[in-house]
Simulated assay, not measured.
Amino acid sequence: MGAVSSRLRRFGRGLALAVLLCGAAASHPSAAGSLAWPAGRGLVDQTGTAVDEARFTGRLRLVYFGYTRCPDLCPTALMTVTQALDELPPALLARLAPVLIAADPERDGPGVLASYLDTFHPAIVAVTGPVAVIDGLAAAYAAPIRRHDGVVDHPVEFFLVGPAGVPVGRIPVTVTPDALAGILRRALSR
């Protein structure tokens, strides 16, 4: 009975990954194209270093749009990422670029993001820049951001982007750290 149960769980996890990856690619408006990051458009990381597509080429990206003043969703999502990354062996982690894109770039500059990331996994890179460029990235991911009265409505999912900048899938932020680690492990093992 235990062996059957174990096989069913593995099958279920594999099926869930296939649905996430296939369904997301089929429904994503940019699925056929690349989600290239514009060079020379003012994007910087938490250290103030310029960020463009070359920084991530050849690595799988786990992208999340969030902001530092978010009371619950963002810290919970980033802790899920942190715990999942802790489960990955160094060789796989080296092939992954976990990225937090500042959904509130007017308030979340490099210094604010650097302080915020101190709580989370050191591999996570934060990206900020002009509102128009951030909103352009969000639109490319079909992940609208709305800002009103100090509140930022942002996507509630992680975006998996392949090494060539092509979308691979969407993962709900409600995923457990173990399940996220499994998804990343499988995606990185291809």
Rank of each mutant, 00 (worst) to 15 (best):
G12L: 13
V125W: 03
F65E: 00
Q83M: 10
V127Y: 01
A126C: 02
V112H: 08
R146D: 06
D45T: 11
F11P: 02
L20Q: 06
D72T: 09
L35S: 00
I101L: 04
P89V: 13
V168C: 05
R146Y: 11
V151H: 09
L78N: 03
T47K: 10
R7K: 08
A132T: 11
L43I: 15
P167T: 02
R107F: 09
T82L: 07
D108E: 14
A181V: 02
L78Y: 02
G109E: 06
A94N: 04
G169C: 05
R9G: 11
L137T: 14
L21K: 08
A16K: 03
V168N: 03
L96N: 00
P144F: 11
L184W: 02
S5L: 13
L188Q: 02
W37R: 01
F11E: 07
E53Q: 12
L117P: 01
D108P: 07
S6V: 10
G109K: 10
F65W: 03
V131F: 15
V152E: 02
T82H: 15
A39L: 07
V4E: 12
T176D: 14
S30K: 14
V175Y: 00
A139D: 09
A142F: 07
A91D: 11
C74L: 09
G2R: 11
G150N: 12
T176V: 08
L184F: 07
G162L: 09
A18M: 06
F159S: 04
H28S: 04
A164L: 12
G109T: 07
D153P: 04
G42S: 08
T80V: 13
A91C: 14
L184A: 04
D108T: 13
A97G: 01
L78W: 08
R170S: 03
P167Y: 02
T68D: 07
T49A: 08
D178M: 09
S5K: 09
A91H: 11
P38Y: 13
L88H: 14
V133R: 00
R95T: 01
E157W: 11
